[in-house]
């Protein structure tokens, strides 16, 4: 049983690394959402919609170009998007018979890859 406990962590770590490497390599920039990074002075020529009145009032009475602030926005590093739709449930079926003995470790890591991919997607995997 002790061996199984250690194997669990080993298989899982290898599978997680494989998934992370795959996602990092396949990631590409997409149209992105912006995130507000830091406040900056708001000037008369800026868009009125950019003026953050609440933050500006924290600086004191509203005095254009003195206490007026806006937020500098930056795109998120890799982009974010919503995905909607049906996420299929996963059943991971791993052959652990004697004929699989030689390749058991690789097969178990592969099973963890399938299981963890499903779990990361928000689905509750079955085994």
């Amino acid at each position: 049983m002790n061996e199984i406990l250690w194997k669990r962590y080993w298989f899982k770590a290898r599978a997680q690394r494989a998934i992370i490497e795959y996602l990092a390599e396949s990631r590409r920039r997409r149209p992105v959402w912006s995130v507000m990074r830091y406040p900056d002075e708001w000037y008369i020529e800026d868009e009125i919609e950019d003026l953050d009145v609440e933050t500006s009032l924290d600086e004191g009475p509203l005095i254009p170009e003195v206490t007026t602030l806006k937020w500098i926005k930056e795109p998120t590093p890799y982009g974010q998007s919503f995905s909607s739709g049906f996420v299929p449930s996963t059943i991971t079926v791993l052959d652990v018979s004697s004929s699989m003995h030689e390749v058991h470790n690789e097969a178990a890591v592969a099973a963890f890859i399938a299981y963890l991919s499903a779990r990361r997607s928000g689905e509750t995997p079955r085994l």
Binding site: A15, A18, I19, Y22, L23, S26, S83, G85, V87, P88, T90, V103, E106, A107, V109, A110, A111, I113, A114, S117, A118, R120, S121, G122, E123
Partner: peptide, 17 residues
């Protein structure tokens, strides 16, 4: 093996990851 499983599972789950 790992690459093949990744490839197949990502076809299904990549949009949701």
């Amino acid at each position: 093996l790992h690459g093949l499983v990744l490839s197949e599972t990502m076809k299904t789950y990549r949009p949701f990851l």
